[in-house]
Amino acid sequence: MTNTMRNTTIQDFKVALVNYPGAQLAAIEGLADLFLVASRKSMSEGGGQVIIQRISAPLEAAFDAVIFPPSLDGARGTGEDKLIAWAVGQHQRGARLCSVCAGAFWLGHAGLLTGRPVTTHWALEDEFRAAFPAARLCPEHILIDDNDIVTAGGLMAWVDLGLFLVGLWGGQALVSATARHLLVDPSGREQRNYRSFRPNRAHGDAAILNVQHWLEAHPDGAASVEQLAAVAGLSGRTFLRRFQAATGLPPSTYAQQLRVEKARGLLERTRNPVAQIAWAVGYADPSAFARVFKGVTGLSAGEYRRRFGTVRMGRGLHST
């Protein structure tokens, strides 16, 4: 990759934006605008352009990249869809196939994700894993580049995907120029910065649900398996088996995720010092809390508060 813009020896970059039924139009038009900005800046330096085509039915033309955007109405595609067969043909001709958010389902139905690292919106994790168990889902990432397959996470991750493709085609200098023009951050985001812990409570196991409610009410307690099993009215071995089956997590991981989620809320809504928040969610050692919080969210507690805090910090007040 070069740090200068492309010159006239570089060919134009042809991109298909798949306008499938239910596709998010804002993403399609936003990507078109992003590529237009990049094209204008490239051509002003004597370089090529990104040629965009919105596709709602199969075409004979060959593309360098094919993008399946997000969907706001639950559209997921099926293996019988003609657009999926067309995308497979484009892939076989050398196109890089890309998706944003639920667009990854279309790539999955195309049979292209077996053994592949892939991301989608973190809230779609369970649905995606059930549909495509052979894919290596990594929902903590905003974007995963697997060479001929590129997937991006949440609804607005089309910005990350668009800038990534601009970089592949035109180099980092063009990415920077495009990002500055659009007033967006060209890098550094991860989905885990935004991801919330949403435990399953619809599993139908009343004993385990009782433990989940108890943990919600006692985030500052370092409960042992024996104590939690007593809350459930079960033996330790039976409790562990049923808790894992109901929630998908061992009790220790579940409790850790729950504490971090409660810490997120306190960082967002209060001015309380980080050490006080650590204590409130069960960490007597602030350094241990700092390690766990960053491991789960990808940000330090102070960085998280600066990015997502809803309470303005007054003079003389500090987040740590």
Results as ranks from 00 to 15, higher is better:
Gly233Asn: 13
Trp279Phe: 11
Pro250Ser: 11
Arg269Pro: 06
Gly233Ser: 11
Ala255Tyr: 00
Ala229Pro: 04
Arg264Gly: 01
Trp279Pro: 00
Val231Arg: 01
Ser235His: 15
Gln244Trp: 05
Gly233Glu: 12
Ser287Pro: 05
Thr247Ile: 10
Ala275His: 06
Val260Met: 06
Ala232Asp: 08
Gln276Asp: 15
Glu261Lys: 03
Thr238Ile: 10
Phe239His: 03
Val225Phe: 02
Arg241His: 12
Leu249Tyr: 14
Glu268Asn: 07
Leu258Ser: 03
Ala230Trp: 02
Ser252Asp: 15
Glu268Val: 15
Phe243Ser: 00
Ala232Tyr: 05
Ala284Thr: 13
Asp285Phe: 10
Ala275Met: 06
Val281Tyr: 02
Ser224Tyr: 06
Glu226Lys: 09
Gln227Val: 09
Thr247Ala: 08
Ala232His: 10
Ala280Pro: 06
Arg259His: 05
Ala280Gln: 14
Val281Lys: 00
Leu258Asp: 01
Arg291Ser: 12
Leu266Arg: 09
Ser224Phe: 07
Phe289Gly: 00
Phe239Gln: 01
Gln276His: 08
Val274Ala: 13
Ala230Asp: 10
Leu234Trp: 01
Gln256Phe: 03
Asn272Val: 09
Glu226Trp: 04
Leu266Gln: 13
Leu240Phe: 03
Trp279Gln: 13
Gln244Met: 11
Thr253Ile: 14
Phe243Trp: 11
Glu261Val: 01
Ala245Glu: 15
Gln276Phe: 10
Phe243Ile: 04
Thr270Trp: 04
Leu266His: 09
Phe289Arg: 00
Ala290Tyr: 05
Ser252Phe: 15
Pro273Ala: 07
Ala280Ile: 08
Gly265Thr: 11
Ala278Gln: 07
Leu240Gln: 10
Asp285Tyr: 09
Leu267Glu: 04
Val292Met: 13
Asp285Ser: 09
Gly248Met: 06
Gln257Ser: 08
Tyr283Phe: 15
Gly265Phe: 05
Val292Glu: 13
Phe293Arg: 06
Thr253Asp: 14
Ser252Pro: 12
Ala284Met: 12
Gln257Val: 04
Ala263Gly: 07
Leu249Phe: 13
Lys294Arg: 15
Ser235Val: 09
Arg259Ala: 01
Ala275Asn: 09
Val292Thr: 15
Ala290His: 11
Ile277Phe: 03
Thr270Lys: 00
Ala284Gly: 10
Gln276Tyr: 08
Pro286Ala: 06
Glu268His: 08
Leu258Phe: 03
Lys262Trp: 05
Gly233Phe: 10
Gln276Cys: 11
Asp285Cys: 10
Pro251Arg: 03
Ile277Ser: 00
Ala230Tyr: 04
Gln244Arg: 14
Asn272Lys: 13
Arg237Lys: 11
Lys294Ser: 11
Val260Phe: 03
Tyr283Thr: 03
Val225Leu: 07
Arg237His: 07
Tyr254Gln: 07
Gln257Lys: 14
Glu268Cys: 08
Glu261Gln: 14
Pro251Cys: 07
Arg237Gly: 03
Gly265Asp: 12
Val225Trp: 05
Leu240Asn: 04
Ser287Thr: 14
Leu228Met: 07
Leu249Trp: 12
Thr253Lys: 14
Thr253His: 12
Gln227Ala: 11
Thr270Cys: 04
Arg291Glu: 14
Arg291Tyr: 12
Val274Gly: 04
